[in-house]
Amino acid sequence: MSVKERDPLTGHQTTGHEWDGITELNTPVPRAVWFFIIVTHIWALIAWILLPTWPLLTTYTKGLLGVDQQEQVEEAVVAANAQRADWATQIDHLPPQEVLANGDLSRRVAETGHQLFGDNCAGCHGTNAQGGPGFPSLTDAAWLWGGDFGNIMETLRVGINSDHPETRFGQMMAFGREGILSRDEVRVVADYVQSLSGEDISATRREHGAQIFADNCASCHGDSGIGDASLGAPNLTDDFWIYGGSDKALFTTIFGGRQGWMPAWENRLGLTERKILALYLMQLGQQRDAQVAVK
């Protein structure tokens, strides 16, 4: 097909070639295409003038707007903090009870706490703060280190057994593994611990267990087993367990010991954020108390 043909449908000429039956029309580039080329190029040109764009050998054109993404985000964060300052300073300075009593501040704590807790704490303590195997529930009434505002703030600041220099330090010895108690003795004292929260055991076993408990455990968990918040030793008479209250779980705990690890948040979260979290936990506690009261 050496001769140029005219396509009857469009009226355009072909280029005069044929490849395996394929021909091409020599239609001019549609006007719309030129138009959009111009529009996009002008847009690009404007962007190049305004924004950092072209590399030179050791520097680059900074653009008329003089923007810089790092400065921009820093400004955005500063501006956001300034915007939050009115309520944030109140949270910083008011006593916790007043914050919780204040409807507006309390709502802000709840709203903010949800995300802060979800992104930082939920991995261990669960999305609804109810804990999990090895991680204490933060909604119950049982606290290792005390559940008042100051204690929670301190726990958050330094962590537990963390790498913070002032960390809270709590360790439950491995009575079995270290050979302090025999396997049988561990079983007996475990039964005794269960009896503290109301389970029936035989009198001889109770006696034997009480003896072992007094000799080994009472120094931390107290004579009656109600724990010691200054040592992080939990109350063993309530029905709240971190590692579980079954025979097997108790055996593992007493035989192998425990040393929970909670990170220090001082360098990761700001003071206000930590305060919000502590208040958020207290709110969860209040909700729990309210539920209990209803029942």
């Binding site: 996009t40 690009a44 962007a47 924004l51 950092p52 764009t53 590399p55 810089d68």
Partner: peptide
């Protein structure tokens, strides 16, 4: 660096016309 991002953005938009 942001200058490379600007180049990537503008050329991507100019690219639309030949693609279409």
């Amino acid at each position: 660096p942001q200058w490379v991002q600007t180049l990537g953005m503008t050329f991507s938009v100019m690219l639309l016309v030949p693609s279409w």
